[in-house]
Computed example of a mutant assay.
Amino acid sequence: RFGSPFDNGYTGERFDTPLLSGLAGLLVSPGKSIFLYAPLTALAVVAWPRFWRERRAEAVLYAAIAAVVLVQNAKWWSWWGGWVWGPRLLVPLLPFAILGLGPLLRSSARARTAAWALAGFGFGVALLGSLVDFNLYLIEIHAQYEAAGRGNADPDIYWRLSTSPIVVEAQRLWEGRDISVVTFHLQRIGFNTAQSTAFLVALALIAVAGVWLLAGTRDEPDIP
Rank of each mutant, 00 (worst) to 15 (best):
R1V: 13
F2Y: 09
P5C: 14
F6P: 01
D7V: 12
G9F: 02
T11I: 14
E13G: 13
R14W: 03
F15K: 01
D16G: 08
D16E: 12
D16R: 05
P18Q: 01
L19F: 10
L20S: 12
L20Y: 04
G22R: 01
G22Q: 02
L23C: 01
G25P: 09
G25D: 02
L26W: 01
P30V: 07
P30K: 10
G31I: 06
I34K: 01
F35Q: 03
Y37F: 15
A42E: 06
L43K: 08
V45Y: 02
V45P: 05
P49K: 06
P49L: 13
P49D: 09
R50Y: 11
F51I: 08
W52H: 11
A57H: 04
E58T: 14
A59N: 14
A59D: 09
L61V: 15
A64L: 15
A66S: 14
A66E: 00
A67T: 13
V69P: 03
L70R: 09
L70C: 10
L70V: 05
V71E: 01
N73Y: 14
A74S: 08
K75I: 00
K75Y: 00
W76S: 10
G81L: 05
W83D: 13
V84M: 04
W85V: 09
V91S: 12
V91H: 05
P95V: 12
P95W: 08
A97T: 07
G100F: 13
L104S: 08
L104H: 05
R106L: 10
S107L: 01
S108F: 01
R110I: 00
R110Y: 05
A111H: 14
A115P: 04
W116S: 00
A117N: 02
A117S: 06
L118D: 03
L118S: 06
A119D: 04
G122F: 01
G122M: 02
F123K: 02
G124Y: 04
A126Q: 13
L128H: 10
G129Q: 10
S130D: 03
L131H: 11
F134K: 12
L136M: 06
L136E: 12
L136G: 00
Y137A: 10
L138S: 08
I139L: 11
I139W: 12
E140N: 06
H142I: 08
A143G: 07
A143S: 15
Q144S: 15
Y145R: 09
R150C: 04
G151S: 07
G151L: 08
G151K: 02
A153R: 10
D154S: 13
P155R: 03
R160W: 05
S162A: 15
S162D: 15
P165L: 11
I166Y: 04
I166K: 05
V168G: 15
Q171P: 02
L173H: 10
E175G: 06
G176D: 06
D178P: 02
I179H: 04
L186D: 03
L186H: 06
L186C: 04
R188Q: 11
I189R: 14
I189K: 13
F191N: 08
N192G: 14
T193G: 00
S196N: 09
S196Y: 02
T197S: 08
F199L: 11
F199W: 10
L200M: 15
A202Y: 09
L203D: 00
A204P: 07
V208P: 00
A209E: 02
G210Y: 04
W212Y: 04
L214M: 13
G216L: 07
G216K: 02
D219G: 11
D222V: 09
